[in-house]
């Protein structure tokens, strides 16, 4: 996998919360490289900083120190407008609780990143429809999130994350809110999409089985990342 180009990297990333005597160092010098087409699982106990790491990698939150590069661009060296563009073009997000917009149908939710990228409505609808078909949600395309099951919502969230063909999809506990059967299906889906579209997936998870399906497993403990055997 290492011969693939790096689509995301972080170097010496630290992050602390609190102030005064009650400072908690969540990340203590994280170095990490993600290559195109690989699935990286980040595991660790609750509160170990997996979500914080994903937020920093997704440039949703600044590190206290260190550098995050997305497709070779130093994410925090530019302004928020430039970071928004980086997120739109290079990153996809899958959250634990799907976070679909309740007022939009699954098709419209899936179209949103493409529309934000400035694509025409017709083009965005075409891309979204293709992805919904890949995740077997075509019959549900015109349904609102409240009208479909949890597993279907999460599959729609995966489709939404892929619609702009980002280099990396960051998934924070994607199966955390699903039963075992649906979690397994989502895992297979991500693996299949990774193969089809060539995106890298960085998955923060508690799930041993989800981590077992990854190309690499990194364990986050006491603010440091260590590689685990797959």
């Amino acid at each position: 996998m290492s011969e693939q180009p790096a689509v995301m990297a972080c170097e010496g990333v630290t992050k602390s919360y609190g102030q005064g005597d009650s400072v908690i160092s969540v990340l203590r010098g994280i170095d990490m490289i993600v290559h195109r087409g690989e699935i990286v699982a980040v595991t660790g106990p609750s509160g170990s900083g997996k979500s914080t790491l994903l937020n920093i990698l997704g440039i949703l939150e600044p590190p206290d120190s260190g550098r995050v590069t997305i497709s070779g661009t130093d994410a925090w060296a530019s302004g928020e407008a430039r970071r928004a563009l980086l997120r739109n073009r290079n990153l996809g997000f899958v959250f634990q609780f799907h976070h679909l917009l309740e007022e939009f149908t699954l098709l419209e939710n899936t179209m949103l990143p493409a529309l934000l990228a400035g694509r025409s409505r017709r083009e965005a609808a075409g891309l979204a429809a293709d992805l919904l078909e890949e995740v077997s949600l075509t019959p549900r395309a015109s349904h609102f999130p409240s009208q479909v099951s949890g597993g279907e919502r999460q599959r729609a969230a995966v489709a939404r994350a892929l619609v702009c063909s980002p280099g990396v999809v960051l998934a924070d506990e994607p199966t955390g809110n699903l039963d075992a059967a649906n979690g397994g299906k989502l895992q297979l889906l991500m693996r299949s999409l990774c193969g089809t579209h060539g995106q890298a997936f960085v998955i923060a998870t508690h799930s041993e089985s989800l981590a077992a399906g990854a190309d690499r497993v990194l364990r986050l403990s006491e603010g440091r990342l260590s590689a685990c055997p797959v």
């Binding site: 997704g58 949703l60 928020e80 407008a81 928004a84 563009l85 997120r87 739109n88 073009r89 990153l91 997000f93 959250f95 976070h99 917009l101 309740e102 949103l112 990143p113 934000l116 990228a117 939404r160 702009c164």
Partner: peptide, 16 residues
């Protein structure tokens, strides 16, 4: 708030 956060994660600019 959450929807605005999701939109920003998807690449909505501050001006948007």
């Amino acid at each position: 708030r959450r929807d605005l956060g999701v939109l920003r994660a998807m690449g909505a600019s501050p001006m948007s």
